[in-house]
Nucleic acid binder design. Structure first.
Lengths: 137, 137
DNA sequence: TAACAAATGCACTTCCATTGCACTTACTAT
DNA sequence: ATAGTAAGTGCAATGGAAGTGCATTTGTTA
């Protein structure tokens, strides 16, 4: 069990108060968040800082970007099961049409997709939309 | 073989010069287009008209929206093989990282995706990214 | 502690999506 | 045919999200 500080140092990211707060926020959130979500949670902080923090996290493979089709970029922590730094091919996300939340299904792998001759597949973005477990009860 | 006029009437869309032009443009284009693409093709027409035309087409299931991860919404004609009005589950698009074009692979079905208990899958958005057949030669 | 590098905050810009309103065009019923 | 109504089009403006430049602050290291 490592502390957040240790994790950031491991990734060669300088530890700052802001980054610790944002990281903790992401841990507590079980769903993917937009920049606005973070902004609303930290009204004292500047939007640019939040923006650049999340971009830093993204570069260092601490979070990954999710494009769930709502048109707004979302971010979620890369879990241990999430090997998006090694293999970019296994993103699988679920977007709830009811509560509008997007979650990572890290333990659900993406099946092999066949593409026509001449096409080279490098990366797959798969978003399943429907009703999440909370809303379907 | 039906004319474009007949097709529009069938879908309860009033036939106008603008709509015919835009429809023809979409037929000629073999790839998904952005609003800006259409705008550049019809510089005399207003952006709003093009926007609302494409929205009308979308509502009537003449075109479908594609979110290929570039952040810009694209549109493509619903082919006969594209039953996005009946069954929303078969979108499959290929985005070329080289030429930046997105095409519909209508004859390539999306495999059944398993989701955890409690989740209800209604719709799947699948975008494969890589190198298209033109660019890989 | 001085010096340098990185992080933060403020202001501003750009781009795409969307809407309100006035005007024009196309259909409908007399 | 024509008046009246509904739909389509064009202009202007707005809003939201993403991104950048620069000055200031904070943190690290010699």
């Amino acid at each position: 069990m490592q502390t957040i500080e240790q994790l950031l140092e491991l990734k060669n990211i300088r530890v700052t108060a802001m980054r610790l707060l944002i990281y903790k926020f992401l841990v507590n959130k079980q769903v993917a968040v937009t920049l606005s979500d973070i902004e609303n949670a930290f009204e004292k902080a500047d939007r640019t800082t939040l923006y650049r923090t999340i971009k830093t996290f993204e570069e260092k493979d601490i979070v990954h970007q999710i494009d769930d089709g709502t048109g707004i970029t979302k971010y979620a922590l890369c879990e241990q099961g999430c090997s998006c730094d090694i293999n970019k091919d296994l993103h699988l996300h679920f977007h709830c049409n009811n509560c509008n939340e997007t979650i990572c299904l890290t333990d659900h792998k993406i099946p092999k997709i066949k593409v026509p001759d001449g096409f080279v597949s490098e990366n797959v973005n798969l978003v399943v939309k429907g009703i999440c477990d909370k809303c379907s009860r």
